[in-house]
């Protein structure tokens, strides 16, 4: 009984919880001013959420070791952050303590939330547009030798061009910055998805194609019911690369020319050397990316459950 209670995994989980509790205590002991009270409040809520998440995840997960490891690493990172800033190992203006960084969410939450909403809108529009256009086009090109011969050299020449190159043209030719950003993200995500679809069609086993041919399918059925699902594994790898390129392009576009969005927020704060806000923005961006990619994985696992 005791052995089961105190397995190494269990000990690891208890240590993690203890670290989180220690961090909570340290917040309660050391606040200096109002701003740090606010930051400490948000920070402790975050720590509490992490602790609850850890316990809940442990009940529902099939892989408790993985969850325990991830949370232990998060706890250790927080401790390191706390230690480095408490003892001022790095200049605390450049690398501020957690309470200061989390205080930003108290003062700037409206700007940050609006920024995220705007960034997600731009990213979503450009990315979904890329998917809607790249998939049918890729299926046709992958299926038709003549179209392929025509478009392969073109895509070979155009796909490595960084999407940012189009920004000046996009800004001049399109009526709003929103549309220009959508366009640039569309260009960035389009090529990996398009090439993924073509590779996907090429990699469908010829026996599957032959088997489909013997059913005497119409061209439309062949494209939608055989080529599309058959190419799906490669489409997803292409779409993932497209998504990451889309996020990077979005942030760069916002830094260059926007007056809204999370990228602009970072750029704006760095002009005033507000390092706490920069760190806060970086945390928001990484959480945003983690959520987006997790959703992407969920969709992928569901669609490719036959694999």
């Amino acid at each position: 009984m005791i052995k089961k209670l105190l397995s190494p995994l269990r000990i690891q989980q208890i240590i993690t919880i203890l670290i989180f509790s220690g961090l909570l205590l340290s917040i309660a002991i050391f606040p200096n001013n109002l701003q740090e009270y606010a930051g400490g409040f948000i920070y402790s809520i975050l720590l509490l959420i992490l602790m609850v998440l850890l316990i809940v995840e442990l009940y529902i997960t099939k892989n408790p070791q993985k969850i325990s490891d991830i949370f232990l690493v998060i706890a250790i990172l927080f401790v390191l952050w706390e230690v480095i800033t408490r003892f001022a190992l790095i200049d605390i203006v450049v690398f501020p303590p957690p309470v200061k960084v989390f205080a930003v969410y108290f003062t700037d939450y409206l700007e940050i939330l609006l920024g995220i909403a705007n960034s997600l809108l731009v990213l979503g529009s450009g990315y979904i547009l890329a998917i809607i256009i790249a998939i049918p086009l890729g299926l046709l090109v992958g299926w038709n030798k003549r179209l392929y011969d025509l478009s392969y050299p073109i895509s070979k020449g155009l796909s490595p061009v960084p999407p940012m190159v189009y920004i000046p043209y996009a800004i001049i030719l399109l009526p709003s910055f929103f549309l220009s950003s959508v366009f640039v993200i569309f260009v960035g995500s389009f090529w990996p998805i398009f090439l993924g679809v073509i590779t996907g069609v090429f990699n469908i086993d010829s026996k599957i194609i032959n088997s489909a041919k013997t059913l005497g399918l119409s061209d439309k059925t062949m494209l939608t019911k055989i080529l599309l699902p058959g190419a799906m594994p490669h489409i997803f790898s292409g779409a993932f690369i497209g998504l990451i390129i889309g996020v990077i392009t979005l942030l760069i576009a916002e830094v260059i020319g926007s007056s809204v969005g999370i990228g602009w927020y970072l750029q704006h704060q760095s002009q005033f050397a507000n390092y706490d806000a920069i760190l806060a923005g970086m945390i928001v961006i990484s959480i945003m990316v983690i959520i987006i990619t997790t959703l992407f994985d969920k969709v992928q696992n569901h669609v490719l459950r036959w694999q």
Binding site: D205, K207, I208, N210, S211, A212, K213, T214, L215, G216, I226, P229, G230, M232, W306, Q307
Partner: peptide, 18 residues
């Protein structure tokens, strides 16, 4: 290919995503 004739191969005759 015509649906008068149907073929079964050693493997992969079925569509794995269905």
């Amino acid at each position: 290919p015509n649906s008068d004739i149907s073929v079964v191969f050693q493997d992969y005759s079925l569509f794995p995503w269905m």
